[in-house]
C-alpha cells in the first residue's frame, strides 16, 4: 500500500466523522431558544469569558517533557542497532542517560517536578 494508505485512511476518517455529523445536521431539527448556545456551567450563567488568561503550573512539565522527548527520539536509532554495536552502545547510552538523569535529579531537587 505504501504511503498512499495514509491518504486513504485520512479520507476514510473524514468521511466517517463528516458522514455522522452531517446526518444530524441534515435530518434532526433542534428547538431554538436563547439559552441553548450558552456555555454550560452547572446551570448557572457563566461569568465572563472562559478564554481568560490562565495561571497554570503545567508548562514546566511541558518544558521538561520536550527535552526528554528529544532524548527519546535519539534512543530509537540507538535501540535498533544496540545488539550489533554491543558494549560500546551501552557505554554511550550510559553517559547519555547519566547526564540526563542528572537533569532529572536537578529538576526534582529544585522542585520543578512539584506541582505549583
Amino acid at each position: 500500500m505504501g504511503s498512499a494508505s495514509l491518504i486513504v485512511l485520512m479520507c476514510a476518517g473524514i468521511a466517517f466523522a463528516g458522514g455522522g455529523i452531517s446526518i444530524a445536521l441534515l435530518f434532526v431539527k433542534g428547538s431554538k431558544n436563547a439559552q441553548k448556545g450558552e456555555a454550560y456551567e452547572c446551570g448557572i450563567p457563566t461569568k465572563g469569558t472562559s478564554w481568560a488568561q490562565f495561571q497554570i503550573g503545567y508548562y514546566l512539565f511541558a518544558l521538561i517533557f520536550l527535552l526528554f522527548d528529544v532524548e527519546l527520539v535519539f534512543m530509537y536509532p540507538w535501540a535498533v542497532v544496540v545488539k550489533q554495536v554491543g558494549m560500546m552502545a551501552l557505554v554511550e547510552i550510559l553517559i547519555f542517560f547519566f547526564i540526563l538523569f542528572m537533569g532529572l535529579l536537578y529538576a526534582h531537587k529544585k522542585g520543578a517536578l512539584k506541582w505549583m
Binding site: 508548562y59 514546566l60 518544558l63 521538561i64 527535552l67 526528554f68 528529544v70 532524548e71 535519539f74 553517559i95 547519555f96 547526564i99 540526563l100 542528572m102 537533569g103 536537578y106 529538576a107 529544585k110 522542585g111 520543578a112
Partner: peptide, 18 residues
C-alpha cells in the same frame, strides 16, 4: 553533546522559570 545540550537547556529553563 546533545545530552549535554539538553541538560543545559533543562537547567536553564528551570533556573529561569523557577
Amino acid at each position: 553533546l546533545v545530552s549535554i545540550l539538553l541538560l543545559a537547556a533543562l537547567i536553564g529553563c528551570i533556573v529561569i522559570a523557577m
